[in-house]
Amino acid sequence: MTLQTHSDHKTQRAAATYWFNELRSGDMNEQEQYWFTQWLCQTRENCLAYRQMECDWACFDAIAEDAAILAAREEDRNTFLGNGVSCVTLFAATTGQALLSAGLAGG
């Protein structure tokens, strides 16, 4: 009987993440798919670590519409996608400017 140490666990987790990521990237060739299967069937712990990964991935569905996640998604879309200018930023900028000119005109 072997003792499952903390570092074994970390290594399995890292390997599971590596393979999971490779698979999702669509970059795996036949040779790599073979290695992946070898790794997966090597020990029960490898298999469990990979299942945990799949389970985490499935669980993210449950939180996709959470208010905090929706806010983070919007923030990231605004920062990294499209033209980089969000409606909110644009609105704030124009309103700010309008207020500023109004303030200057009033003063």
Binding site: R24, W57, R73, D76, R77
Partner: peptide
């Protein structure tokens, strides 16, 4: 990391 993850998982 958050952006890349969210784009792939949620978008």
């Amino acid at each position: 990391a958050r952006a890349a993850f969210q784009f792939h998982r949620f978008e």
